[in-house]
Structures are given as structure tokens and as C-alpha cells.
């Protein structure tokens, strides 16, 4: 892990993710009766697990990152819910613990994972020649 790369900007998301997980867990398990609770829940469920996973894979994207984080978070929420329901173990507490664990573990792993860049793509256009055909006359003589 190279801490030199870790300027204050790179700490923002990990902090937000950890604080969001704590906030939603406290709100849900302490049963806060506050109009803020649905908003905190929506924020966590729609952003955090996906964003944490994106970042652990070195995908720190600007605008696209938000979109992918939302899509992946909502998909993970659904997948966790389906797994719990169809296994006969439906419990929102278990669901929240799983999603919080995904978020926290990914966030804590992030500094230890090396960010790598992929190769630059090259466009290659290959023309495949037409398959040579035998002349009909030659075929007849055979």
C-alpha cells in the first residue's frame, strides 16, 4: 500500500461509505422514528454497496461511477433479498448486515488493492478473403 497516493480526496468516499453504513445500521437497529431514516436508507441502499465494490476494483470514475454504483447497489439489494426470501430466511436485519458487510469489507480493502491501468486499445480491421471455390467444369471432369 502506497500511502503517498492517498491525498485527502481519496479519503472522502471511504469515509462517506463507512459513515453511511454506521448511520443506516444505527437508524434501523435502534428503530429511529425520524423522517430522515427513509432518506438515509435510500442513500445507503442505492449507492453504498455498489460504490464500495467499484472502488475496490480500482474503478474510481466520476459521472459514470455514480450510475454504475446505483445500478450495482440496487441489483445487489435485489439479489440479497431474493436469496433470503427463496431460502425461507427472510429478515431485513440479515439483509442489512450482508449489505453493510459488503460495503465495509470492500471499503477497508480498498487501500490494499493496487490500481492498474489496462492496455491501450488498437483498432484492427481484418478483411477475410472469400473462400476459393472450385470451378464447376473442373468438378465435373473429376
Amino acid at each position: 500500500m502506497n500511502w503517498k497516493d492517498w491525498g485527502w480526496k481519496r479519503w472522502v468516499w471511504p469515509l462517506v461509505l463507512i459513515l453511511s453504513t454506521l448511520a443506516v445500521s444505527l437508524a434501523a437497529f435502534q428503530n429511529w422514528q425520524s423522517p430522515l431514516r427513509p432518506l438515509i436508507t435510500l442513500w445507503f441502499m442505492a449507492i453504498c454497496p455498489g460504490m464500495a465494490l467499484l472502488r475496490v476494483f480500482g474503478l474510481r470514475l466520476a459521472a459514470a461511477g455514480w450510475t454504475l454504483a446505483i445500478a450495482f447497489s440496487l441489483a445487489l439489494d435485489t439479489a440479497v433479498g431474493i436469496a433470503l426470501l427463496y431460502s425461507g430466511r427472510w429478515s431485513w436485519q440479515t439483509g442489512l448486515v450482508i449489505l453493510a458487510a459488503i460495503t465495509l469489507i470492500s471499503t477497508l480493502l480498498e487501500p490494499f488493492i493496487k490500481r492498474s491501468e489496462g492496455p491501450q486499445p488498437v483498432i484492427v480491421v481484418t478483411k477475410v478473403p472469400a473462400r476459393p471455390r472450385k470451378p464447376r467444369a473442373a468438378a465435373k471432369t473429376e
Binding site: 428503530n31 435485489t78 431474493i82 426470501l85
Partner: peptide
């Protein structure tokens, strides 16, 4: 095809709401 509804249910309960009408 209940995937969306299951997700809605999970969010509704974690948010401490009585109904998804919210």
C-alpha cells in the same frame, strides 16, 4: 417475477416504513 418487489420490501422495512406507498 418478484425481484423488484422483494427489493422494495427490503428497503421499506429497513427504512422503518409501514407501506411502500411512501
Amino acid at each position: 417475477w418478484p425481484g423488484f418487489f422483494i427489493m422494495g420490501g427490503l428497503i421499506t422495512q429497513i427504512a422503518g416504513l409501514d407501506s411502500a406507498v411512501y
